[in-house]
Design a protein around this nucleic acid. Structure first.
Lengths: 124, 124
DNA sequence: CACATTGCTACAATTTTAGTAGCACTAAAA
DNA sequence: TTTTAGTGCTACTAAAATTGTAGCAATGTG
């Protein structure tokens, strides 16, 4: 809860509470996968590929008690706030792509460098 | 690494790799606190209030190997990509405030409701 | 040389998460 | 009415992650 002492912060600043929450395994993933559409418990389990039911349940309770998700006839859904939160983190999708690309290039360069080095070594 | 199988995903989609990374304890916090200014190891330890040196070291290595942070004369710093990542999550600061406010109001309303209920009960 | 600071490493204790099994409930089919 | 299938979980143990504390090696400073 914001205002209350949180794991990693004695101050209880909202941002610390939020970073603590989002920093827990699967929090971000659940929000991410719930944006597509509301989902039942098991549907959500599938979307998250590997989450264990006990943890999923724990996270759902946390997120629900903090008004980020809610339940209705369709199952679990983002609240309006939750959707706003998703909007904020949504650009991560694009960012992750260019990030991945750059890392791959870096790795590739390393390989090239090594090849060059080997070639040079063999010529000495 | 994006492209490689990650905790929580067999597909290795960049976004999954990223959510996995950011979902680890203190990843977000480190990025957040590093945006203020570059920091030495111990300075960063202080900013994060409660992180243990072993974990901080682990995270720094991860973030560094993934080109999100780097080291220079000033200590640890966000890379250009890291800064861009921060820019994306930066609105979380503002969001967390209104979120906290709303939760507090909700709690407050509960109290009010209870007070009203008690009053009504006592008048019966 | 003593002393302080920095960037860590080591390691046991504790907490968190994964993985698996299965129960209670509901609804439809046989 | 019994079976079957699906859903929302709970229980439990093993494995992994995190904390908390101590301290070492390297670098500088008086």
């Amino acid at each position: 809860m914001p205002g209350t002492k949180v794991r990693g912060s004695k101050t209880g600043k909202p941002i610390m509470a939020l970073l603590d929450l989002l920093g827990r395994t699967w929090s971000l993933g659940i929000i991410w996968h719930l944006n597509t559409a509301p989902a039942t418990f098991r549907e959500l389990q599938d979307r998250c590929e590997q989450i264990s039911p006990s943890l999923l349940n724990t996270r759902l309770k946390e997120l629900k008690s903090l008004s980020i998700i809610t339940t209705n006839e369709q199952g679990y859904t983002l609240t309006e706030q939750g959707r706003h939160l998703f909007d904020i983190i949504s650009p991560l999708g694009q960012w992750s792509k260019s990030w991945a690309q750059q890392i791959i290039n870096t790795e590739h360069n390393k390989t090239i460098d090594k090849t060059i080095k080997n070639t040079m070594d063999s010529k000495q």
